[in-house]
C-alpha cells in the first residue's frame, strides 16, 4: 500500500492521504478485508500529525470505504471493490478527456456535477483547445 503526499501542494494533507488510499483501492492493491496501517505509524512515517491521518480515515469511513472499529483499526469494506470495478472505465474516460484537450480539473468538475443533481458543469475550457 503506497501513500504519497506533497506538503507543497494546495490540497489539504488529509485529503491527499485519503486520495492515495482511494487510488490504492481503485488499483486493487487495497482489497476488502485489508487493514489500513495504524494512523500513528502512518503519521510518523509521513511526518504529519496523527489527527491528519485520522481525518483521512474518517473521510474514507464516511464514504463507506473503510470500517473503523475500536481495537481492530480501519478495515477496507466490500464497497472498495466497486472502485476497482470502475477503474477501466475511469482510465478510458481519462484518455478520452486528454485526447480532447481537457484539463484534469475540468474533467473532475464535470464528473462531480454529473453526480450531484444534474446541474450543468461550468468547467468547459473557453473554446476547444488544439492538441499539438
Amino acid at each position: 500500500m503506497l501513500i504519497r503526499i506533497d506538503p507543497g501542494s494546495d490540497v489539504a494533507l488529509f485529503a491527499q492521504v485519503a486520495a492515495s488510499l482511494r487510488g490504492e483501492m481503485a488499483q486493487g492493491r487495497l482489497r476488502p478485508g485489508d487493514r489500513l496501517p495504524a494512523a500513528r505509524e502512518v503519521g510518523t512515517s509521513l511526518g504529519v500529525n496523527l489527527h491528519t491521518v485520522l481525518r483521512a480515515y474518517q473521510d474514507l469511513r464516511d464514504e463507506g470505504l473503510v470500517d473503523m472499529r475500536r481495537g481492530r483499526g480501519a478495515v477496507v469494506t466490500p464497497r472498495a471493490a466497486a472502485l476497482s470495478d470502475l477503474r477501466a472505465e475511469i482510465l478510458a474516460l481519462g484518455d478520452r478527456a486528454r485526447a480532447l484537450g481537457m484539463t484534469a480539473d475540468t474533467l473532475a468538475s464535470l464528473v462531480r456535477d454529473s453526480l450531484s443533481d444534474g446541474q450543468p458543469g461550468t468547467g468547459w475550457p473557453e473554446g476547444p483547445r488544439e492538441q499539438v
Binding site: L2, R4, I5, D6, P37, E41, S45, V48
Partner: peptide, 12 residues
C-alpha cells in the same frame, strides 16, 4: 520518481 519535498510510505 519522487519529487523534492514529497513524502511517501509503502507498507505491506
Amino acid at each position: 520518481p519522487v519529487r523534492p519535498g514529497e513524502r511517501v510510505l509503502w507498507t505491506r
